[in-house]
Amino acid sequence: MTVQASNLESEHLPDPTGAPESDIAKIAGKSPTKLAMDRFRRDKLSMISFTVVAVYVLIGISAPFLVKFGVLDPTGFNKELVDPSTGGLPIGSYGGASWDHPFGVEPGTGRDVLSRLLYGVTFSLTIAISATIIAIVIGTVLGIISGFTGGWVDSIIGRAIDLTLSFPQTLMLLALSSMGVATVAKFMPGGESDNLPNGAYVVIVLGLFGWPGIARIIRGQVLSVREREFVDAAVLIGASRRRIYFKEILPNLWAPLLVTFTLTMPAYISAEAALSFLGVGIIPPTPTLGNILRSSINYSIGDFMFFFTPAFLIMVIVVSFNLLGDGIRDALDPKAAR
């Protein structure tokens, strides 16, 4: 994430005096951002998890192009690679692994597992990122308004947060799914069984139930930021509300937002998988890590690798994002315990 407002960043840093004196002496003259980056780089675990996340993101971005240019083939059948007499199990050991299909082929269809997994990363990440962005946008806007305005606006938003949190999220996602997808489909190209409405439904509902926690965090941050002089100054010179919210306050929130983002992503990647298990979300043949795992359940005993691989990929990205989030938080706030 790039940072523009260079002179304002210091505002967010909680209690810089917490760092040992010797450190301060050594790295004097560096900006707080630079300090944080240095701390982050020094932490091996953070760097590893950052690399893993970066690899996943790279896969996610490049997979559609690789599919387009025919390098990956997530939907093409290879009937000659599965044995109809065994109900379509792949021919050969390790799930039919070969030079052409390093992760083997899917039972029944002979589709290339590696292609499906890589392309699945694209869709899993897209869903998680979209839902995270919706949650963060709503949470941030309401958090800023609530924290800055105070008064009755604050209490209304506070009650809205309580209300949203009291809904059982998974239940709502499941219960609203059949009607919800149909509703979403009305506003989108494609029918109820297309990927767009199914994916969009998950994204929207995850986002709509995900903002309250973020709003609370942001509100807390805003409460401290609004006492700063530059905000007073902006108010005094008669800056508009919108300007104060988005030009003065928002740039000071990037640190908590970054941490929130990296910690919300893994939750939504897991949520996508869990919802796939319940039959909600993008449906095959378009792959997501969740629906690949779901379709491999039947083969848990017959073709264990096929069952294990998608689960493993989900585990790795969820762990990495969590560690990355922790690492970023610690780098920004060295006093926080690890």
Binding site: G87, Y299, D303
Partner: peptide, 8 residues
């Protein structure tokens, strides 16, 4: 019997 189980 699901096809996945034929081989068993």
């Amino acid at each position: 019997v699901p096809p996945a189980y034929y081989s068993q």
